[in-house]
Each structure stands twice: as C-alpha cells, then as structure tokens.
Nucleic acid binder design. Structure first.
Lengths: 330, 330
DNA sequence: TAGCAATTGTCTCACGTTGTCATAAGGCGA
DNA sequence: TCGCCTTATGACAACGTGAGACAATTGCTA
C-alpha cells in the first residue's frame, strides 16, 4: 500500500497540513522543515493520490482523447503525440482511447471519461472528414474533422494550401504536364486539394481543370481500392504524356509506383511522382523515395490540446499548414 | 456539474442508501423501486464518480499500458486493442500511453500511473526483444518482450513456430529452393525464425542452413535499411536460383518486391515471396498481394491484460501462435 | 395478535487531500 | 510591557461513495 501524507507527517513528526504545504509548494514553510519533509517523501516514495485530489479539488485535470479508427490508418499517432506532449507540459492528464465510432468501444470510452469527470474531449478522426457529434455538457474539440452544424471548435489541415504549395513547387521545378490522381469526392480533402491544385496551376499559367482524376474506387471507411490502372493506362497511351503524377495519398502513390512499373515507366526518370501524407515507413521505403507533403499532425494535436485546456471561446476552425518533404521521386 | 447519488435520491424521493443499493446491485431492493431509481439515473445522466469510488474502495481498477515506440512501427495497435477489449470486458480501466523508453514521456507516464494507483502495468514493445525493467511494487507484464533476468511474466509470439509453420506451407506447395532473408541477429525473433526455417526445411528433407541470409543493415531502433540488393543479385546470378524468398518482415518484403523488379523478376510468377507480419495496409497493397504469417498481436494483448488482472503466479512466458494469411505472392 | 420477512431509512465512518480558519512564537515600535 | 505584525504550524471540515449497525414500516403468516 503506497504511503499517504498522513504517513509522511507521522514520520516527520509534523502535521498533515505542513506536509500538504510542502507538496503544493506553499512558500509559508520553513526551509529546514521543507527539506526534512522532502527527504521523507523521497524515502517512502510518496506519490500524491490523484483520486483524492480530484475529490477535494472538484476538478479532474483529465482531457479525453478519442482516436477513431487508428487501426486502419497509422498516421494519427502524431495527433496523439502532439496532444499528449501539451497535456504533460501543462500539468494535465490525457486519457487515450482507440475507438471505432458507433461500436461498443465508443460507448465504453464515453462512460469511462464521464466517470472520471473529464473536462474536455478531443475527438480525432483518421482523415479530414465531417462528423456529427451531439453537444454534451463536456466540451468537444474536433481534430482532423469538423461538425456539420458548426457546433464544436475544430482543428484541420489546410488541404487547400497544401495542394497549392506542392503545385507551386512542381511548377518551380519545371514540370508542365502534371496530373492529379485525387481521392474520392466524398472525402473533404479531395475538393480542397483539387481546388488548390487547379488554382496553383492557373497561377503558373496552366488550365489544369481537366487534369484532375478521381482514382479511389472505394468509399470512405471501406478497404482502400484504387482505380489507377485504367486512368494511368489512358493517360500514358495518348500523345500528351504527363511528366508528373500527383497522388492523393502515399498509399495511392505506392500503388501508382507499381502501376507505372507495369507500364514500363520508371519513377523519377520517365515520370515524377509526388503525394500527400509522408506516411511512415512507406514514403521512405519506396524506390525512389517519395517526395510528399507532410500533414501537420503533430502540431494539430498540440493545438487541439491547447484548445481543450483553455476552452474555446467560439466554435472556431483552425487550419494548419503542412511541410514539403523532399526525396527523389520529384 | 454532474449529478451525485444524493441528487438522484432527492429526485427519487428516497434515501441515499437505497440509491447506493441500486447502484451496487444489492438484491434487497424492491423491483419497482429499483426501476424508478434506474429511470432517474438515466434521466439525469448520473455516472458514479470514479475518484470517489477509488477512495472508498481503496482500489483503482486501473491497469496501465505503456506502448513503447508505436510511432516507428504501427502493428502494435492490435496489442492495444486486445488489452483494451479485455479490460472493458472485465470491468477494468486501461490507461494507455505512447512512450519512448528512457525519454521524458516514459517518466511522465510512470508517475501518472503511480498517482492513479495503477494495479498493474503492461509494457509493450514494438518488436520481440529483450528489455531490462526493474521490478517495483506494482507488477509488470511484458508484452512482445521479455526481461533478461526473468523477473516479470511475459507474452511473446512463438517465432519459432511461426517460421516452422510457414516453412511447412512452403514445402507443401512444392517450393524446393527457398531462401530466408532474415532480420538482424540482435533481434530475438531472428534466431527463433532461423531455427524454425532450418528445422522446417529439414523435416522436408532439405538442408537449409546455408539458405539463411541477414538482410537488415541497421541496428534495432535505427531507421530501417536493407541489404537485400546485393544478396538478391548474388542469389539470382548463380545457377541454383531460389524459387521463393521468405522475408523477415513485410516492409522488407516491400523492399524485396522493388529489388526483384529491378532484377527483372516478377513476384508470383518468376519467384514467390512470403513474409512475417501482415502489416496493414502494406501487405494488402503490394502487387501481387503478400502472403504472410500474421503475428498474434490481438491475442497477445488479450493474454497480457488477463494476466495483469488475475496476477501472475510465477514469471511465466506465454508464446502464442500466428496465422497464415494467404494472398497471391506464394 | 404476535412474530417474521422484506424493504427502506437514519446515522456514522473512512478513504486522502487541501482550503479556511485558528493558534503559537518571535520581533519590533510605542 | 503591550499591542500588532509576520512567519510558521496545526485543527478541522468537506468532496462522493460504500458499508455496517440498526431502526422503522409494511404485509403476511402462524
């Protein structure tokens, strides 16, 4: 059984309250008394009992983090890391759950967080999407997703800007016939990136509106299935062959590598490839290494936790920029 | 402010004690009274205050889960899921942390678990390895790793058996010239799988002791770098060309796909490939799909949590078998 | 009518911590 | 010496829950 303040007080031959003062850094303690008590704390390995603190202070210092569907998409780890780091920096406890929305795991996590009187809940999705979260008495922060009714504050990647940035880089490097194999239209990022790509190309003097193709067959949530084979075959059979394929995500890029090889084309030599995600370890292991726009997941996680702790004043939407990761495919 | 038992009692016009009886399933309550009180509990959304329960009952019902280095290797998600499922099934709370051993995150997680009076701690590694965990007053269960001094119970994949199983399948399907591109020798699984492969081949009448090659350059922990290029070039330049390449892990298999293509060899036609991990989503996205031995992570997670809850009687080591996942590379 | 079982209520305590208030000791100016 | 301030320490209560001891009430049976 771990030691209590009472036990420390008994050994230090002092009162309970003085021990409490030492632990809470109350300046009203004599330096010698403090040293003596601290020595005993170290000796018996005393750790404050979190539950008792929660009782007494009537606040839990707990922020819940619901990671929806991590299993199917590993990038959300950085969302978790960012949030966890901020929680520790700011003296909060983060309670993390991997859930699947609508499944029992979700209900269990909710009730556990309620039982612990969590002060806020961060709900993180694995890709930029709309969700429908009913407001409750505990504030929710939506991470990598947003509420249709705008009922919750939200942290998102700036997908439009990501696409504009990489498109700018593409043209700066002299590519003139890029195509964009985009994600499914029911994925929010798809619209935004398509817009970023087209407007980025327009800024470089190219009308790229016919150079965007939807290359994901499956709906969101289902196992990913790509429609790249036919699209690439068409694109590379005509006269105006693309000099670059921009992919909607790194795993699509992986698929594209294989399909291009099938067509006898060598990535980085016959055609360039770029993408979005910087998915570990795929992006680095492809040959040649995949140049890709990294999504700002770590910073998004940090921002969400800060918002959860400080409380959002209104249901703001925060969009964060990404970073270009250079390898040799572009 | 969430409701308390007192508030429920007030609304139900009954006593605190009766509400307490309902919540703790005391049979000495009239069925109608119980129904009435349960209705009010649902109405006000009462959830027992976990901190108060911990205080009163002097037990936390909390099991800590330290996931070391998830960021670098996503397969451990299933370890987490297995443990989480069992925790919920058995009425325990699991506190999950992504840590990096030796880094501040590790110390923070430890002290948070101490503050919550965790009853046991599961320490999970991302690959089968030896670790050195000092015994403390709270019992540790090692998951996917083991203690050098045998001071903790341990749950491991049965790497020897995994290799034997896939080797048996390989010979059953008629392959006669397999090579095994193994992991680094400082990875424990490497020895066990090498042994499983050689003994499996021996059972089929082949001396495979010269058919195992170490194909990972980097040490454990560092970014993965493979030495497959030279090895494959050598193997496929001679007369006795392998008909199958067994890889130590799926990401190595991915690398091997590229290197074989480089040599002008088509996986599934000119040469078969098999591997270990069933790493999502890589194994399914490679073309052709990668046939691989799935590691029993989910079941290992479950076993670890059961052991954490029940308490280990001795520092046993439990080894779990894997499952062959058939795709078309073999 | 007494006695019994079933049901509900009252009261009290304890868990570990910390805020409020009280107390004690020492210094200092009037 | 007294009053007052500062510094240091202590006594006590309360947070929400659960449990024990026991009383009170009701309805039923012998």
């Amino acid at each position: 059984m771990p030691a209590t303040q009472r036990e420390v007080a008994r050994r230090a031959k002092t009162s309970l309250k003085t021990v409490s003062r030492v632990i809470n850094n109350d300046p009203l303690v004599n330096a010698e008394t403090r040293a003596r008590i601290e020595a005993i704390i170290a000796e018996v390995g005393y750790e404050p009992h979190q539950a008792a603190r929660m009782m007494r202070s009537q606040k839990s210092n707990i922020i819940g983090f619901l990671a929806d569907g991590v299993a199917t998409y590993p990038s959300s780890i950085d969302l978790v890391r960012g949030a966890q780091d901020v929680a520790w920096e700011r003296g909060k406890q983060m309670m993390l759950f991997n859930i699947e929305r609508g499944r029992p795991s979700s209900a269990m996590a909710d009730s556990q967080l309620a039982a612990f009187r969590a002060e806020a809940i961060i709900y993180a999705a694995t890709f930029h999407q709309q969700v429908d979260i009913e407001p409750t008495s505990v504030p929710h922060i939506l991470l990598n997703c947003f509420d249709g009714g705008g009922r919750h504050p939200s942290i998102l990647p700036d997908d439009y800007q990501l696409a504009r940035d990489i498109t700018r880089i593409i043209f700066e490097r002299g590519y003139r016939r890029p195509v964009f194999l985009n994600l499914n239209t029911d994925i929010v990022a798809s619209h935004l990136r398509g817009k970023g790509f087209i407007e980025g190309a327009a800024a470089a003097g190219l009308d790229a509106s016919a150079r965007v193709h939807i290359a994901v067959k499956s709906a969101a949530g289902a196992p990913t299935e790509f429609g790249t084979r036919r699209i690439l075959a068409d694109l590379f059979s005509g006269g105006d062959r693309p000099d670059l394929v921009l992919c909607g995500q790194d795993i699509m890029a992986m698929n594209v590598y294989f399909e291009l090889a099938e067509l006898g084309l060598k990535v980085g030599k016959d055609v360039a490839v770029a993408s979005f995600d910087n998915l570990d370890p795929i992006a680095g292991l492809l040959q040649p290494g995949l140049s890709t726009m990294e999504l700002p997941y770590y910073e998004m996680g940090r921002a969400a936790m800060n918002l959860a702790i400080d409380g959002a004043t209104h249901n703001q939407v925060l969009r964060l920029k990404g970073k270009f990761i250079e390898r040799s495919s572009l």
